[in-house]
Design a protein around this nucleic acid. Structure first.
Lengths: 197, 197
DNA sequence: ACCTGAACACCGTTCAAGT
DNA sequence: ACCTGAACACCGTTCAAGT
């Protein structure tokens, strides 16, 4: 009979994932020690490597789990609206995505944030924020903004993020040959949102 | 007189930044060795720590430099349009932002990417992409899409990125109390872009 | 089948000494 | 003033042995 110290692989792996998630939230990726993870999971250090190839592998597995949970949650949120109520579904998707991320902010941050330096994040003056500010200033200079035009501060965040997402997509999903298409799409998004023309 | 081995601090720091940038592009942040950086800059290992507090500090300095250059470049791009041609300025900003990122794709990626695992990125099946796919599927289910409605694949990327940016902003710039406001703004963006109503 | 933990290897960082 | 490079310290990872 197996000693009380052994467990089915599934359970042990789940223990390590859970322990890893806790430590990562507390300390961040870099400061997380495999020692801490295994201690919290109640196993020896070497056991970690029976279940994960490396620390990066643990983080990747937690990212998978995070997004899997998110997708399932959002499927449930949209399913509360009938198929005929497509706008209702879309609104639910958008709202639930934001709320889900906010509810799991610490975990999301540690798993998906490129760790900008410490000090920069604390003051809110990250390089990227200065770039968003440049766009906000441009938006604020608009002459004769029509009624219904969005606030520059909020519009800057949304449009900057969209642009950034474009680039990410072009680089990782396709070749840059579709750049013109994406630029046109980003412009269209901006024009419609800002009520230009 | 100073030996030929010494340089003004400004120059030495610039050398280290340049060398660091090259090595980071070649190897990525984690695989970059301080040894490699100092060898390429032609100084001893210890010299690195006269100019930077740590490896993370080097990366932060390179992020600053990257965004500073970007902001300057975009200011020039928009300045080619008269102040009265505000839409021209905005279009220029959007287009130039995308082109600039694409031109410096390797550097941008290494400085700002949260390093999703190796294998996932190579296949393009990152957890986040599966989340974008969920939105694309929802968009594709739209009944009676009006003429001029954007392609689901492109719209999904833009709207997903906007949502993600919202969350980032809420978490790092303000308290989550403005969540409702951001959710409303994200919805408005989606409605206008997708020509809903 | 699953687990242990001492030992190894690999750098980031420091620091006493050099020009 | 600025630089050197050997030594140190700190883990991530491995592996021979255990139940």
């Amino acid at each position: 009979v197996p000693s009380t110290r052994t467990k089915p692989a599934d359970e042990r792996r789940a223990d390590l994932l859970d322990a890893g998630q806790e430590v990562l939230i507390e300390r961040g990726i870099e400061a997380t020690r495999i020692d801490d993870v295994t201690a919290r999971a109640g196993v020896a250090k070497g056991t970690f490597y029976l279940y994960f190839g490396s620390k990066a592998d643990l983080v990747a597995a937690l990212r998978e789990r995070f997004i899997d949970d998110l997708i399932a949650r959002q499927a449930a949120a949209t399913a509360r609206f009938a198929a005929e109520d497509w706008p209702g579904r879309l609104d639910a998707w958008m709202e639930d995505a934001i709320r889900a991320y906010l509810e799991h902010a610490e975990l999301h941050d540690v798993l998906f944030a490129h760790d900008s330096s410490d000090a920069a994040v604390a003051t809110g003056i990250t390089p990227e924020n200065r770039h968003v500010d440049a766009l906000r200033n441009l938006l604020a200079q608009r002459p004769d903004a029509p009624p219904g035009a969005p606030e520059p501060a909020i519009a800057a965040v949304l449009l900057y993020s969209a642009v950034h997402g474009c680039v990410h997509y072009l680089l990782h999903q396709h070749d840059a040959a579709r750049a013109d298409e994406m630029i046109a799409a980003a412009r269209e998004l901006a024009h419609r949102y800002l009520l230009i023309d």
